[in-house]
Design a binder for these strands. Sequence first.
DNA 1: GCTCGATCATGAAAAATTCTCATGTAGAAG
DNA 2: CTTCTACATGAGAATTTTTCATGATCGAGC
Lengths: 305, 305
Amino acid sequence: MIELRHLRSLTALRDSGSLTAAAERLHLTQSALSHQLAELEQRLDMKLFERKSRPPRFTLAGERLLALAEDLLPRLREAERDLARLRGGHSGRLHVTVECHSCFEWLMPALETFRGYWPEVTLDLSMGYGFEPLPALARGDVDLVVTADPVEHAGIVYEPLFRYQNVLLMPPGHALCNKPWIAPVDLAGETVISYPVEPERLDLFRRFLAPAGVEVTRRSSELTVMILQLVASGRGLAALPQWAAASAAADGHVVTRPLGEHGLWSTLYAAVREEQRELAYVAEFIGTAKASCFATLEGLRAATA
Amino acid sequence: MIELRHLRSLTALRDSGSLTAAAERLHLTQSALSHQLAELEQRLDMKLFERKSRPPRFTLAGERLLALAEDLLPRLREAERDLARLRGGHSGRLHVTVECHSCFEWLMPALETFRGYWPEVTLDLSMGYGFEPLPALARGDVDLVVTADPVEHAGIVYEPLFRYQNVLLMPPGHALCNKPWIAPVDLAGETVISYPVEPERLDLFRRFLAPAGVEVTRRSSELTVMILQLVASGRGLAALPQWAAASAAADGHVVTRPLGEHGLWSTLYAAVREEQRELAYVAEFIGTAKASCFATLEGLRAATA
DNA sequence: GCTCGATCATGAAAAATTCTCATGTAGAAG
DNA sequence: CTTCTACATGAGAATTTTTCATGATCGAGC
């Protein structure tokens, strides 16, 4: 009657706030998910959630099933880990490379959690400086790359982690603070602080300024805290993922605005070699990373609300 | 990967001691179960149990999954009960009739458990004396009949509860104690004590003595303890389900022997009206009854070992 | 009020899975 | 050595799950 699939679907629905988004997270079509839940409701002869409210509102029955999911799914995952460990031979290496500098915020907790689950797996971590991560991944020098730029590559598969928005950071009182959102031309002639990588690898330049032909003065810093510092003290502007700027913005040190009318959105992916995708600890790492991203966004939402 | 179905299959396998028996309990063919478990083992890339030992011996991985099942399945059942309760309207009546006099041993604990789970359901209990239980079931006077005699009847479905053996009870020192098993002719002329119902409704007469044309002197008593008493004091012999005789036999008050070379086996069924079979509390009662039967047999095995 | 965009529902068909049937094999009991 | 029972296995049937294509609904913005 009730299947694990249903529990996973309901949790995804709660966590993502819409059928469509939940379906994507579950690697299903929206239709499949709609059918699946409709059929479950029919079999149980109960409504599980209110469709016409956003986010969907769960009924008591729905809540009960979500509670069941909270109860069962972690135990199931734990058993699966135990089995993978029992099967043995999987005390491998996981060399993670991050292209996204601000990702440490959620990556560090994820690494920590993972290390607890899979103590036998040797974790390596490197930044995507100085070499092209994807060829390195394909060669096997690296096992997992966190990137916002999913280039097609034979034997490489991308697993979406989450979607986020890049925002513009300004010192309080900057003229642009008065605009609800920032157009490319607004930045003409400004000083922009970024991580020290080629502009083509930064969304701000590649997807926002370059298409509009806008030129800016560039300045760079390796560290996110340093960038925040520089912006706060009026040495320039910067574009960062929303979550990286959130705490400074909440403290009033900087002001953030969307880039473009609808914001400059990116999706972060975990790239792995196809043959490693099903490997227990790799799949587990991706799951942990997703959860950590989600927790970060949650914390952000809670902090700003 | 791992599904609830697998957990149920493994528990059934452990509880029934063979693939074939487990398959029957799960309402599957032996083939289906074999396929299912073989495929799970392949997907996990681990052996879960040793086939060539009887009862099957579980590997560590198998044990881990059994532990998971112990963990998840009761929680799942609990959630299902909560949902059924939430759906409401199911505070019905459950009128149980028992044809089998010795069944109270396991029926009472089952009723107790059930009452805890479904306090809204009014429980009635009656013995199958003085009226034909099946027509009463079909009419709706009764909702569930425990019987060893599954007569085809439109609209009535039978759910097997468990298989048991009828054994012959004798006072210690009786001549027949020397035989490893009892033939019908051995009983010719003996006094046989039974419950006060027509002989055709007692397996001993219908399936054992009558086919062989053997006549005995009959005597009857309503109570199982009384029958045990009479046998122990040499007033006659009796045939009872093994579990009902077990404690007296363990104490040495009576001696038991199989009836016929292979024993006189029966299966106990729960009969319900087809349209009620899927009803939550009916299904739950049958489940509880099965579990209780199983626990009784377990206790028996433990006591005799 | 109308259109646009997005979300969700729905029917039919395709794909995948799970089960059964028929049969084969191996080990235990006689 | 035969027979019996439990289990395995391949092929096909049945069922379930998913997708595709399309329609309905609802809110935002003009």
